[in-house]
């Protein structure tokens, strides 16, 4: 199966319809807010809030659960390693140089929740904004068009290269290829596949060069955008609201 790098969940909720620039700004502010959350309770509240917003915007539970599963390894690593890196507070258990403490465990929980909050804040942007919209937002914010194009081409061709990899691997399995033995041995077995994939990728990029030239990438004098971005009143109100909320929260957190 092909892994697609397009995480967009099509929909028409308020969040979907907002200008991507307003959403980029909101994501930036929420990332800063994540670092100001004072305690575990606030972190949980923040996460719960994002879940509610996403569900209300039509992102299904399955998608959210998928993100939880993707984050699981990182969360488990943090929970297992972090307590021993910062042994503060009352000691619960100790083995040689390793000390498990209440403070260390609380610290790990905080760090894990922070990682989750960051992931969900970024996912909120990606789930509700299509790639072309995101790219044109970045271009409108000053990124050169060719950079934006490069980003979308990479996202387009990663799955194509992955498909090529599967095709070549199947073809070689049909000629007696089996990967077994030690990891080193298995990596070695993959060399012929990678050679064929590399040749195929080079051919693809040659064709892409021609395709872009044939439709006027270099002869284009002045590009226009079909879906030109417009900051409407709603978008300004959203950006202003989220900025005010952030300032209030930051002032309240930092005043002491």
């Amino acid at each position: 199966m092909t892994v697609t790098f397009d995480t967009y969940v099509p929909g028409s909720s308020l969040l979907h319809r907002l200008d991507p620039r307003a959403k980029l700004w909101a994501t930036l502010l929420s990332l800063m807010a994540v670092f100001l959350l004072p305690n575990v309770g606030a972190q949980l509240l923040f996460l719960a809030g994002i879940h509610l917003v996403l569900l209300a915007s039509g992102v299904p539970w399955r998608t959210l659960w998928g993100l939880w599963r993707q984050m699981a390894i990182l969360v488990i690593l943090i929970m297992v390693l972090q307590p021993f890196l910062r042994p503060i507070g009352r000691e619960v258990f100790s083995l040689g140089p390793l000390h498990l403490t209440t403070g260390g465990m609380l610290d790990a929980v905080r760090l894990a929740l922070r990682a989750l909050a960051i992931a969900f804040a970024v996912a909120t942007l990606l789930y509700t904004t299509s790639q072309p919209a995101l790219v044109s937002a970045m271009v409108r914010l000053g990124l050169p068009y060719t950079w934006g194009l490069t980003v979308s081409l990479a996202l387009r061709f990663l799955p194509a290269i992955q498909d090529l990899f599967h095709t070549v691997r199947d073809a070689q399995a049909a000629r007696g290829w089996i990967a077994e033995g030690s990891i080193f041995r298995r990596l070695q077995e993959h060399v012929p596949i990678l050679v064929a994939v590399m040749i195929g990728t080079l051919r693809m990029s040659d064709q892409l060069t021609l395709a872009l030239a044939a439709r006027g990438l270099e002869t284009s004098r002045r590009r226009t955008t079909w879906h030109a971005l417009h900051m409407r009143r709603r978008d300004w109100a959203f950006a202003l609201g989220i900025t005010l909320a952030f300032c209030l929260f930051a002032w309240w957190q930092l005043r002491s």
Binding site: R156, A211, G216, T225, W226
Partner: peptide, 24 residues
């Protein structure tokens, strides 16, 4: 397939027109 590089069918059709600099 190698000359299609946009994320949706309609964006694919629009790409060349954008390069031509037509009004939206």
């Amino acid at each position: 397939a190698t000359q299609l590089f946009n994320t949706t069918v309609e964006d694919e059709v629009a790409w060349g027109l954008e390069a031509m600099g037509l009004a939206p």
